[in-house]
Design a protein around this nucleic acid. Structure first.
Lengths: 159, 159
DNA sequence: ACTGGAAGCATGAAATATCATGCAATGATC
DNA sequence: GATCATTGCATGATATTTCATGCTTCCAGT
């Protein structure tokens, strides 16, 4: 039945597996989007936009970071992050202080309110992650985490 | 030196591993972003915006899809996709035809030019993916792909 | 010290995205 | 087969994002 020498239209050839559903960049983007969406609903329910939550998480990890360092971590472009920080500042979640070592730099610090919110959201993020992983066969989640850490490291190594 | 019964500030406690760099949603989003960025440069170099490339890839896989089906696949919201399609139509990459079975539906078809571009870009995507995977120890890439397919399936199963 | 260049952040104008809603076609219920 | 709800797509108003560029501060070389 299969005469590969005849039907080589490339598109519908016999042994082809579908491209899209196996394409790594698609799987990454799509999985990231659907996995994140659930939690992002929680984020918005707490009056935060997604990049604001990311900033809180980054500062929770290390307070007083500069805008330029925060931007890639929060997956936001610099000018966008500047504005987000300004709004968070206006709202009293963070505080901007010029770095005395280098006055070009602006370092961002959590306020008490910001820290409280960050703590709360981080706890929720942990819970959500646990719940997310629970739909997978045991161990798979950690396996995925480790692989992603590896790839992520390789990719960000070559700046 | 370490008296865990004293310094339990939760934040800087002894055995804590960093949250962010182990947080699955962060790893997914950040890895996806940096992995995609390289290829997206290629996409733009060919005069396409990222969602346009995604539409081409989706149609290459299955021509004549409806807008509503295309939107989640191309990771774009419906009204956004409508406009993107309109531009691609204006540019001659796709064609919109009302579905005779259900005249609310608009089905999108690749034009000859669109198909040629899609074929070309898919080939480049394959190449880029191979190159991307080559920075990983052999096998790791496929392992990652399989895990992502699993998680992706689980996540999209519960609509 | 002086000059050129780069780093760090801010900002205006233009491009995009989103949200709610509109409209048309279909399906379901009685 | 009239009515009401729903699906599918389009669209206007608004909000967000981006791009280029400006301004300031620092650094390197001279």
């Amino acid at each position: 039945m299969d005469h590969p020498d005849q039907t080589d239209s490339f598109e519908e050839a016999a042994g082809e597996r579908p491209f899209l559903s196996n394409y790594l960049l698609f799987l990454l983007a799509s999985t990231s989007a659907s996995a994140s969406e659930e939690f992002h609903a929680t984020v918005r329910a707490h009056g935060l936009r997604v990049p604001e939550w990311r900033v809180l998480a980054c500062l929770h990890e290390e307070d007083g970071q500069m805008v330029t360092r925060l931007a890639p971590l929060a997956l936001a472009e610099q000018s966008r992050l500047t504005r987000i920080i300004m709004q968070m500042d206006a709202r009293g979640l963070v505080e901007r202080r010029s770095d005395p070592e280098d006055r070009r730099r602006v370092r961002i610090y959590l306020t008490a309110e910001g820290r409280a919110l960050a703590d709360d959201m981080i706890a929720r993020a942990r819970d959500h992650e646990a719940e997310l992983l629970s739909v997978l066969p045991a161990g798979k989640g950690e396996e995925l985490r480790q692989l992603l850490k590896e790839v992520h490291a390789k990719l960000t190594a070559r700046d």
